[in-house]
Design a protein around this nucleic acid. Structure first.
Lengths: 240, 240
DNA sequence: AATTATTTGTCCGTATGTATG
DNA sequence: CCATACATACGGACAAATAAT
């Protein structure tokens, strides 16, 4: 957070996402916000412009600035996504995210099997070798795992796919750092735990891409995400 | 577009997306932009704040406002998505979008088969009946088709999924209106053409959801999107 | 390493636009 | 049609950060 308005955006944005400002509610007018937060109207207006671009509010002359309903929110904005994940009340949002991943990541793997250059394949292979060395080491695994999935993703050559999955992973990682650490069984990597079984799940993906078997890569990546989903579901069963 | 800064955002945003402003380029400083577009610095600053929230630019003191690389863009912002689709140079972006749909829409259909209430099922049924009446009528088909897929989507009960697919469809529809009309074989609906064969493809999805067969709903929706993809690919083969 | 120049960031007084009652 | 209340827009001044010298 560099400047005042970015700070304000975080502060107000969180209050909206967590429901401290209710949907349909009118925010205090610019002058009052300026008073409340001790900043100029300029800063307030720029903040509101940003929140408006995120789909969280809409300003109308004379009527004031209103909090928009959830369907209008720009969920894929990294800030919005992170705030939603931080919010304790949205725990099952993690499951929704996983459903999205279940859709996208297998497709990305299939595309990688189709489009990867030899150089791409080398990168994926390197990352997989690092995974092999990282059994039992949570930190090293998380790092190699990141590179493994990153290299597959890049080989999909679909910019929108790359951007979407990366956004999703960033949000998962940052929310893990902030709020999910407390859950003891939640893995450091957004994919899996550093075990032999997990390595095998990755091996199948790796091998499928190497032989350019799109359908197999699709299925094996789906297996992996399904595993992530079941970890999540177990956590909920045991901790609530 | 109501106010000056929103107009400016469209103007500048399009120039960035279409490459008129190159990645890494420094925009004219606020005072110059103010001069160029005949608006106050306030308006310029608010516009830049908005573009910054879209991930298109980043302002730095003394260094000016720089155009960010494509990987930083907020692709799921409806404006950004629309501008990209409008850009003639990004024609194969439609294929990338379809790859995303190939991932998400079958998952949404499977979730609907799992979670739909009886009321949801009624809505889906109503829309399907309207589809039956709309064979051969492009406009009526497009409308019923919209409601059919919308009712399935709502029954997925995954807010992020709903928002994402709706954003995607909005962008497709609006880009069809603006730039794709010229392509004669591109259907009015983002899903299919009003033919008997298309109706059957929809029927299979409808029936699978009715009997709550998640896997079948998944497969049949995948068939439908695959069909859309092949329409697109044919268009490219024939028109370029 | 210190200074300067340049650009964004911030503040505020004022005026206009727009929808409501 | 007028009065009200809010966002929108303008512009001059100064502060703060940092690239360049």
């Amino acid at each position: 957070m560099k400047n005042r308005s970015e700070q304000l955006v975080s502060e107000l944005g969180r209050k909206i996402v967590t429901g401290e400002f209710i949907v349909g509610e009118i925010l205090p007018k610019v002058e009052e916000l300026s008073e409340i937060y001790g900043v100029s109207r300029t800063v307030i207006r720029e903040s509101l412009r940003s929140l408006s671009t995120m789909g969280l509010v809409r300003s109308n002359q004379r009527a004031g600035t209103v909090v928009l309903q959830r369907s209008e929110w720009q969920w894929w904005n990294l800030d919005v996504l992170t705030w939603v994940l931080e919010d304790e009340n949205n725990r099952d949002f993690l499951l929704h995210l996983t459903e999205i991943r279940m859709g996208l990541e297998p497709v990305a793997a299939a595309l990688a099997a189709k489009r990867a250059t030899n150089q791409d394949l080398d990168k994926i292979g390197d990352a997989f070798n690092r995974l092999k060395q990282a059994i039992g080491d949570e930190k090293a695994w998380a790092s190699a795992d990141y590179d493994f999935h990153e290299s597959i993703l890049q080989a999909s050559y679909n910019d929108l796919m790359i951007n979407t999955i990366k956004t999703l992973r960033k949000a998962l990682v940052s929310s893990r750092e902030k709020t999910l650490k407390a859950i003891k069984d939640y893995p450091e990597s957004p994919y899996d735990t550093p075990t032999i079984e997990a390595l095998d799940r990755h091996r199948f993906i790796y091998e499928a891409i190497m032989v350019r078997d799109e359908d197999l890569a699709y299925l094996k990546m789906k297996d992996l995400i399904r595993r992530v989903k079941s970890i999540l579901e177990n956590i909920y069963d045991n901790h609530s």
